[in-house]
């Protein structure tokens, strides 16, 4: 056991993560479907982060970072795949962000995925370099 166990180790019948998994999923859905870029990005990050957290807490993963990177890659690849399959190449322009309804949503998902990959990578590096 760690030196300073958190809530999950302290209380066997409590977990701080489920509320945030649910909130993350709800915000992701609202953001992506209604087309609210910031809500989509933050909702997905919250969802991915909480999933990584809850898997670590319940012992399915030893560290959260690889999960976070995995979810990020999965989301980004899926969104990119939909974009490639559904949109003409002429739609892939910076000016189209915020204009094309589908393109904007997919960019939001890719951005969220990229942020998760970055967060996962940074977390992993920080953890390994910690004394």
């Amino acid at each position: 056991m760690e030196e300073q166990p958190g809530l999950s180790d302290q209380y066997r019948m409590s977990s701080p993560w489920p509320v945030f998994v649910a909130l993350g999923l709800a915000l992701s859905e609202i953001g992506v479907f209604i087309g609210l870029f910031p809500v989509a990005v933050f909702g997905l990050i919250l969802f991915g982060g909480s999933v990584a957290g809850i898997l670590t807490e319940s012992g399915y993963a030893t560290r959260p970072w690889p999960t976070l990177v995995g979810i990020g890659v999965l989301l980004a690849v899926l969104a990119a795949l939909v974009a490639v399959l559904q949109l003409p190449t002429s739609a892939f322009t910076l000016a189209n962000v915020g204009e094309g309804p589908l393109f904007t949503r997919l960019v939001a998902v890719v951005v969220a995925g990229a942020v998760m990959v970055a967060m996962g990578g940074a977390g992993s590096v920080a953890e390994q370099t910690k004394v």
Binding site: W17, P18, V19, A22, L23, L25, I54, E57, S58
Partner: peptide, 9 residues
């Protein structure tokens, strides 16, 4: 935990 997630949705 899935039980709790299901409720909080």
């Amino acid at each position: 935990r899935i039980n709790a997630i299901a409720f909080w949705l």
